[in-house]
Amino acid sequence: MYDDLITRLTAGDRRALARMVSLIENGAPGSQEALARLHALGGHAHIIGVTGSPGAGKSTLVMQLVRELRRRAARVAIIAVDPTSPFTGGAILGDRIRMQDIGGDPNVYIRSMASRGSVGGLSSATRDAVRVLDAAAFDHIIIETVGAGQAEVEIVRAAQSIVVVTVPGMGDDIQALKAGILEIADCFCVNKADRPGADGAVAELRMLLSLDTGRDKAAWKPPIVKTIAATGEGVPALADALANHIAFLRASGQLVERGERQARSEILALLYQALLARVDATIGPDRFAAVVREVAARENDPYSAARAMEQQLGL
């Protein structure tokens, strides 16, 4: 159905690429078939997630990282995710403001996406957009996302290397890191290192990492890189750290493991959606709601209710 679009986007046509991302974001009929074909074409890009607290300098850092990767002759795509307002469904996507220097480079593609209805900061459309960009033969795909709890964990599903950006003088920020994203970071970036307290922040992170017993001793030790995104200082070291990380994943077999973990969660999510659609079609939302009320009122129990539905669905 989208053969023409796929041919053109794999040949480097940016309008075709942009339109394919829109079609997928809107769940257009036939987009799953297109994604299936795109999936077969991809698998070559290094997918990098960048997360951290609001205003930490993520977009500026991404812009500098792209400049560095361009110096290394790579083609780079960026997906910048900002939150959808839960009240209006609208969004202001402002990450491009910091990326003007690279916006006109024909080997760079930048796409702003709203999180829309997704639970974390990363919509499932983001993962599908990554699939389009991967098929379009970008060497690196960078996802910038708002650092808001669940979002960091969601990033893991789409990214191979995760950069957590923090800034000096945010003790609370470091405390928050402890709560969940310490485990998922493959690389820490202490940005705004031109400000006082950068070395202290590095030391604090190092201390926290040494306490993190959840990590396998033989596993990757996340480097801590000091950067000044405003000037680009430290960014080559960040690019090196990311190159080392993907090399480590490849050599250790963990890249395949990560890929399988992602594939598994995607299949399960699709199965779950398919099951819901069948429940909708076979049992119907009204009957379902009635059963929910019965169970809540203790006229029925969840086990019998589920078993009856399974039978009706032919499971």
């Binding site: 987009s31 994604l35 209805g117 997704s118 819901l276 659609a277 429940v279 939302p285």
Partner: peptide, 18 residues
């Protein structure tokens, strides 16, 4: 991308992702 179904526990204030 799967369809949003009416059984999804999406709060009223949120917009269907598609």
């Amino acid at each position: 991308m799967a369809e949003q179904t009416s059984l999804d526990a999406t709060p009223q204030t949120q917009v269907a992702p598609t």
